[in-house]
């Protein structure tokens, strides 16, 4: 069997003690001494808002943020991700939240903004400025990267850059950010995603294309890819509603497997980091490497 020979491997991005990327072939292929393995992250919200599913609240069994952090720390996930799902920025509150994270989480952390460019433009630089350890900041996008990149560079952080399911914009954002002085070894590509049944295949194919481009020698598309599939999974009706015919199965089971399935698919497409919402899926997804 002729092994696949890439011109270039996926860039290695060091997140604290962990390494994302470094792949010399497609996922699960051991050719070319491919020892790269994907990482898992577990994501918790800063506050429980109306959109956060009841079924996950039950699993966490922690109404208090600090309690949630402790539980997230105790999952087998490699990384803990905290989503600041806020609309108003209260600096004192943010600083207290950072303190709580630094106190309770002994793993690398992803600090996520509110998915709102107006908020994130202020929030993410504020967070980046006030962290004790280099962490992942997520995410910069076309509208916000200029405001976020300088603080990320100063803090020695890693920036996750989100593009709207578009490989050209993904590349452009990487170029523009490196032009501002950000090291390409400090970038993660977030190609954005639809959940299972909601356009998953678009993001899936973009991931495969990014990986192909990287292997063909494109050094502005060879950063590790991160997929925030937990959030997308728990937006779908299948994970939120019991209102389905019997063939759709038990609600609790479906609400877990909807994320399991999407995450496994994205790993096969080349995701280097999958960010999950369901703590029970962490060991399942990690188990794919056994």
């Amino acid at each position: 069997m002729k092994p696949f020979r890439p011109n270039l491997q996926i860039r290695e991005v060091n997140i604290d003690c962990l390494t994302a990327g470094g792949d010399t072939s497609f996922s699960f292929m051991k050719e070319n001494e491919n020892n790269a393995s994907f990482l898992t992250a577990i994501e918790i919200p800063y506050i429980y808002d109306d959109f956060y599913p009841e079924i996950l609240k039950k699993l966490w069994n922690a109404d208090d943020f600090e309690q949630r952090l402790k539980h997230a720390q105790s999952t087998p996930a490699d990384i803990v991700s905290v989503k600041f799902n806020i609309s108003e920025i209260n600096e004192k509150e943010i600083l207290a939240a950072i303190k709580a994270i630094e106190k309770n989480v002994k793993k690398p952390v992803i600090y996520r903004g509110a998915n709102n460019s107006k908020t994130d433009r202020e929030l993410l630089p504020l967070i980046a400025r006030n962290l004790m350890h280099p962490s992942v900041i997520a995410f910069g996008e076309e509208e916000t990267y200029k405001d976020i990149v300088p603080e990320v560079i100063k803090g020695g952080h890693i920036l996750s850059l989100r593009s709207p399911i578009d490989i050209n914009i993904a590349k452009e954002l990487n170029i523009l950010s490196t032009d501002m002085g950000l090291s390409p070894d400090k970038i993660l590509i977030d190609p954005d995603m639809g959940g299972l049944g909601y356009g998953l295949e678009y993001g899936y194919s973009i991931m495969e294309k990014i990986r192909q481009a990287a292997f063909e020698g494109d050094n502005m598309l060879n950063m590790p890819v991160i997929a925030f599939i937990g959030e997308e999974s728990y937006r779908t009706k299948e994970t939120k509603s019991k209102n389905f015919p019997a063939s759709w199965g038990k609600y609790e089971t479906r609400a877990q497997l909807w994320e399991t399935t999407a995450a496994a698919a994205l790993i096969s497409a080349g995701a280097n980091i999958v960010v999950l919402w369901n703590p029970e899926n962490v060991s399942v997804i990690k188990g794919l490497l056994k």
Partner: peptide, 13 residues
């Protein structure tokens, strides 16, 4: 059923 629903949906995608 829940597993099959997820798998059929992935396959469709």
């Amino acid at each position: 059923e829940a597993m099959l629903t997820a798998l059929f949906t992935l396959r469709q995608n």
